[in-house]
Simulated assay, not measured.
Amino acid sequence: MHHSRLCTLVLDCEGDDLRKAAAFWSAALGKPIANMDVDGDGKYAELETADDEPLMLLQKVDHPSRVHLDIETDDQEAEALRLEKLGAKRIAYVRGRWWVMEAPSGHRFCIVHKQRKTFGPHLNRWD
């Protein structure tokens, strides 16, 4: 048995100026910038969200801008296998920390480790 849930909306931002993108989305969504350099590499910024909302990240990328979802889980391998049975495929294991997956619809998404101390509401239990 394992658990998973939607945890993060990631705004993939093409270009070098993540600060400008973070300022826009912060103002557009009414969410203050919580951290302009999440991993210390200048590639991720985080907007402040409430505990019952998904996390909101901005990611500096080389591909065209888009939005992708992160699914957090307490067992990445079990979650990847579950989603493969539904038709998803594994694309890459990144930094030894998350799986990039592709849905049958062609959408990319990630399977990540648990992101908050508690899973909180909206948790799915899979046997």
Rank of each mutant, 00 (worst) to 15 (best):
D51M: 11
L6S: 10
E14F: 11
G87R: 12
D51I: 12
H2W: 10
W25N: 04
R116H: 12
D17P: 13
H122W: 04
D16L: 07
C13W: 06
Y44I: 08
G120Y: 03
K117F: 00
H63Q: 15
T49M: 10
T49R: 13
R82D: 00
A50T: 01
V112R: 02
C13Q: 15
T8P: 03
Q115S: 08
W25P: 07
C7Y: 00
T118F: 02
E14S: 13
R97D: 00
T73R: 04
D75M: 00
D12L: 07
E102C: 09
D52R: 10
Y93W: 08
C13I: 15
M1A: 15
K43G: 09
G15P: 13
V10R: 11
K60T: 04
T8W: 02
E46P: 02
E46D: 01
S26R: 12
F109N: 08
A50M: 01
T73M: 02
K89C: 06
D17A: 15
L81S: 14
L9I: 14
F119M: 09
D75R: 02
P54A: 07
C7I: 03
R66Q: 14
H68G: 06
A22G: 04
Y44F: 08
G87P: 10
Q115W: 00
D12E: 08
D74V: 05
T73D: 00
A27F: 05
W25M: 05
D74R: 04
D127F: 06
R19E: 03
Q59R: 07
F109C: 10
F24Q: 01
D127P: 14
L57Y: 04
N35P: 05
M101D: 02
R82V: 04
A21L: 11
L6N: 09
N35I: 08
V100Y: 01
A88Y: 03
I111N: 06
G15D: 09
A103R: 13
T73N: 03
Q59I: 02
R19H: 04
Y44T: 10
E53C: 06
V10G: 06
P121L: 02
G42S: 01
A28N: 09
W126E: 07
E46M: 06
L86V: 13
A27Y: 04
M101Q: 05
D52F: 10
D17F: 14
A92Q: 08
R125V: 11
A78D: 05
L58S: 02
H107W: 07
D70P: 08
D51P: 13
A92N: 06
A92T: 08
A28K: 12
G30S: 06
Q76T: 06
P32Y: 11
Q76S: 07
R90T: 11
K60S: 01
L18P: 13
H63C: 13
A22C: 06
